[in-house]
Structures are given as C-alpha cells and as structure tokens.
Computed example of a mutant assay.
Amino acid sequence: MLGRITVIALLVGLFGFIVQSAQEEECGSFNEDQMLKQNGFAIPTEHQWVARIVYSKGFEGKIKDNGCLGVLISKRNVLAPAHCFVQYNGVAEAFSVHLGVHNKSAPVGVRVCETDGYCTRPAQEIKLAEIAIHPEYDSRSLKNTLAVLTLQRDAKINPNVMPICMPPLQLLNDTLVAQTFIVSGLRVFEDLRLKTWVNTLSRSHCQSRVKSLVTSSNTVCGYHARKEAYYLGAPLVGMQKKGSFTQNFYLVGILIDWGWDKERVMSSFLAIRNYMDFIQLNSNSLIVRH
C-alpha cells in the first residue's frame, strides 16, 4: 500500500482559482429538524462533509487520541490539520480518505443497516494524490497547521457525502468570539458520528482555563455543550442565514487541539477564514453561498 504522499507547499498567489456558486453545486446541507435533535449522534444525512483519514497502517496515526479527520470542501479536496501528516523526518504520511462514514466500525464499501433503523449508503474510500502543507506551518507551535488534500478522483456526491460551503464573504470579518457553532465528527469511544454545540470564548479566557491548549491569533476556542472530545480535524460549522431563514452550514474552523477543564471539554479550532488564499490556491473549486 502507498504510505507516503508527495508534499506540495506552494506559495500563495501563483495561480488562479475557481469559486463556484451554490446554484451550480450543493454544499452545507441544512435541515432544521435534524439540527434541533441534539442527542449527540448525527444521522447519515447530517454533516456529510466529515472525512476520515486513513494511514498506511490503518486509521490511527501518532497524534492525540490516535485518529484524524478532515472536511470535504469540493469533490476533489479535503482540509485537515498539518500535524496529522507531517512526521519528524518531514515526510507527510497518509494513504486515503473515507467519505460518508456514519459508523466507524462498519466496513467501507458495504451498505449497512444500524440497529437504530438507519440504512446507509456504502462509504467511499479514495486514495490521496497530493498533500499541500501550509508553507509557514511550524510543527513545534502548530502555527498554521493546515493541509489541503487532493484526491485521486472526484468524490461521488450523494445524500451521505457533500462538501461544506466555504465562509461567505460578508462574514469573513465578523467576530468569532461569543458565538454558537456546531462541531461534528468521530471519536475514540463512540462508533457513530457525533455532533455538539460549541460556545466560543476569548483566547485569553481559554488559555487561563486550559493552559496547555494550543491557541493563536488564527484560532477560535470554546466549550463543548456535551462532554465529548473529537478526533483532530473535526469541522466547526456556522449557520448562514438569508432573510429570516437559515439556508446552509459553512466552515468556520478545524479542530487542532482540546483539553479538559474539570468536567468540560474545551477545544481550539484553526479559523479557516485566515487561510482562504492558500486553500483557494490548492483546490480545484470551492463553493460559496451568497
């Protein structure tokens, strides 16, 4: 099996990019009834952009809690933390991604019916072609820990697999503090995909509560509403409104670190809006709702 992927660390601004409108392609599927059911588990047609990273020796890597996730941002691209890939020798190690995973213990490529009544489409496994590591990534401080993965083929979009919308331009400069977002993903002690609210706080408050938490001017942090910690790379999403209606989810950040504050989980997310040039440079197309 292929275990090492060429690392592409291109400088921003060399090439153009394509931003598609949401009318051309769907993204960030939002269902109000699903959102209101905050029992911890996300059904197969919720948060369909969560991707599981697969290494040459299996799902688990040598990182905190032994697993990494990414987020599908187009048919051919996935975002993930750079420290999920770059080893001490500077080589980025990964093999493929799994898309449409609802139960992490279920076999890939097989239709599965759960005891809760949900029958899911077969999860997709797609091998990686390239990993673009941010050129200013620092493995010691985890500053700029961002990677754009390019898949060898397009993901097949269906009700269980869909890209997340990118941040709308009008929200790029809004504050990320004192907001309520949703994080979704997989974790060590649960088989099914989870979701929970995240209430964001100031960086100084987060550092005062969990001193070991990785934070910077390019991160947003906050408490989880439920006592659940997720694999690194779990996407943090916000809700974009149009008039009096919520029309879609959009990507706010990806989980890069977490810790316990007594009985509460606090996480730190890399804020994606600060890296749009790098993401656009290394992606074949992105979807933004207006």
Rank of each mutant, 00 (worst) to 15 (best):
A147K: 06
C165M: 02
C165S: 00
S105W: 09
R187A: 01
W197I: 01
I126T: 13
H134D: 01
L171E: 04
L151F: 11
S141N: 10
P107S: 10
A147P: 02
L194V: 00
V198G: 02
P159W: 04
I131L: 14
I182M: 07
L169Y: 08
Q124E: 12
L201N: 02
F181N: 01
G185Y: 06
A123P: 03
G90P: 07
E190N: 14
K127C: 00
S184I: 01
C119H: 09
N103S: 09
P163M: 12
C113M: 04
T175P: 00
K127T: 08
E114N: 06
A132L: 05
I131C: 06
P168Q: 01
K104I: 10
D138A: 11
L146D: 13
P167E: 08
T115M: 12
R121H: 10
N173T: 03
I182V: 15
Y118P: 03
D138T: 12
V177I: 15
D191N: 12
L176R: 05
L171M: 01
L186W: 07
H134F: 02
R187Y: 01
T196L: 04
S96I: 01
L192R: 13
N103P: 03
V101Q: 08
L176S: 11
M166G: 12
L194G: 01
D191M: 06
I164W: 00
M162K: 07
Q152R: 11
P135R: 15
P135V: 10
A106C: 08
L192Y: 12
Q124F: 04
A132M: 02
L186V: 01
A123W: 04
I126V: 13
V148A: 11
M166H: 10
G100F: 02
Q170H: 15
E93D: 06
E125F: 06
L186T: 06
V148T: 11
L151M: 15
T145E: 15
V161A: 04
D154P: 04
S139M: 09
R193Q: 13
S202V: 00
K156S: 07
T196A: 04
T145L: 00
R140E: 15
E93S: 13
V97R: 10
V177H: 03
E125G: 00
G185T: 00
N158I: 05
H102L: 09
A147S: 15
Q124S: 04
E125Q: 15
E125T: 13
K104F: 07
T200A: 00
G100I: 08
P168T: 01
E130A: 14
V161Y: 01
G117N: 05
E130M: 06
T150H: 10
S202K: 02
G90C: 07
V161E: 07
R187G: 00
D174Q: 13
L176P: 00
P168D: 04
R121I: 05
D138P: 10
K127E: 11
L146N: 13
S96V: 00
L99Q: 07
M162N: 08
V108Y: 06
Y137M: 12
Y118Q: 07
C113Y: 05
H98A: 09
K104M: 11
I126K: 15
V97F: 11
M166I: 09
A123Y: 08
I131V: 15
M166N: 11
E114L: 06
K143W: 03
V198K: 01
K127G: 08
I131P: 15
G185W: 10
V177P: 00
L172R: 15
L176F: 05
V188A: 02
F181Q: 03
A123F: 05
Y137V: 14
